[in-house]
């Protein structure tokens, strides 16, 4: 265990935000989940007790008759904003006095940095480069992430959970978002920071970053495993496998969407366009973990090889 190496990475000033992230994200996930579960308990109560559902104010926040529904922004909100500004300024001051922004040698195109890393918030994209070619990892997938995010409100046909924390009423939406945000995006930022060393080689935390290490892992393409050698054969075979993946994922996802009565009810509300868009983005999103497993566990580089692009 090379603690010095681990400390060197964790204490690099530019990595401090990631250390903060590792603390803040689990905290806020817990914080949100706690409120969701509290609300869910109340929802369960209201569902079994129609009389209560009629009279209850339907929030977990305390409520007494006679309390005003609204409060003045000045001072009840402004004082919080003012306090927040002071706290943030204080944190920034301490942080800026304690840690210096990094400054390396002057830019030198003839001296490559190794590892040469993107800023931490783009490490997810750089990590995707391991599993996809640059046109996919650097251009197509980031664009699809953005468009997919923007499409969320238009794909989500579930009217419940509008303006309050809940898990029970939005299980699928929450799982899908957390999978994308926490598992795919944030964990790749963490992998990119703590695990990827010189040559973008996988070093477990605590393993020394050996600049001379070379990994001799022969990556194979899927058609090779099946002994397909002709270019045309590879193109057709890859196309079929990709289609197969799409079909299997689509069917599995359809099963999720029609899993129980509630899911079916929401599914009924979806338009065809909503359904197809959602399918498209789920299939695209799931291709990342599938390719990660193919690569990390089976050393498979490409599935589909054509003269113009490889996937």
């Amino acid at each position: 265990m090379d603690w010095a190496q681990l400390w060197e990475i964790a204490s690099a000033p530019d990595n401090v935000p990631i250390v903060a992230l590792i603390v803040l994200v689990p905290f806020y996930s817990w914080y949100g989940l706690r409120q969701s579960l509290a609300n869910d308990r109340l929802i369960a109560q209201l569902e079994t007790d129609p009389q209560m559902a009629k009279t209850h104010h339907r929030k977990t926040q305390p409520w007494r008759p006679g309390w005003e529904r609204e409060v003045h922004v000045w001072p009840y909100l402004l004082r919080i904003e003012f306090l927040a500004a002071i706290i943030v300024t204080f944190i920034l001051m301490v942080w800026s006095i304690a840690l210096n922004a990094p400054l390396e040698e002057p830019a030198n195109p003839t001296l490559t940095m190794n590892p040469s890393k993107a800023p931490w918030y783009f490490l997810g994209l750089q990590e995707m480069l391991v599993y996809f070619d640059p046109w996919m990892a650097g251009v197509v997938l980031p664009s699809l992430i953005l468009v997919g995010l923007m499409a969320i409100p238009y794909m989500d046909a579930n009217p419940l959970g509008n303006g309050y924390y809940t898990y029970k009423q939005r299980k699928f939406a929450i799982w899908a978002f957390c999978f994308g945000f926490l598992i795919l995006w944030l964990s790749m930022v963490v992998i990119g920071t703590f695990i990827r060393g010189p040559g973008w080689i996988w070093f477990w935390p605590g393993q020394t970053w050996d600049h001379n290490r070379v990994v001799f892992e022969a990556n194979r393409d899927l058609p090779d495993i099946f002994g397909i050698t002709s270019a045309l054969g590879k193109g057709i075979f890859g196309g079929i496998v990709t289609l197969l993946y799409t079909a299997v994922t689509a069917i599995a996802f359809h099963k999720v969407l029609t899993w129980n009565d509630f899911n079916r009810k929401i599914y009924q509300r979806m338009t065809l366009v909503q359904y197809l868009t959602l399918q498209f983005f789920i299939i695209t999103m799931m291709s990342l973990p599938v390719k990660m497993i193919a690569r990390l566990a089976f050393r498979i580089k490409y599935v589909w090889i054509t003269p113009w692009f490889n996937i």
């Binding site: 530019d14 990094p102 400054l103 390396e104 040698e105 002057p106 830019a107 030198n108 195109p109 001296l111 490559t112 940095m113 040469s116 890393k117 993107a118 800023p119 783009f122 994209l125 750089q126 480069l129 070619d133 640059p134 046109w135 990892a137 650097g138 251009v139 197509v140 692009f309």
Partner: peptide, 21 residues
């Protein structure tokens, strides 16, 4: 800042733009 850190980060980043379909 025109240092190694920024130079290589931007080089890596913009190299992806080469591969734009």
């Amino acid at each position: 800042p025109d240092d190694q850190l920024g130079f290589w980060a931007v080089t890596v980043g913009t190299n992806m733009a080469r591969a734009t379909p």
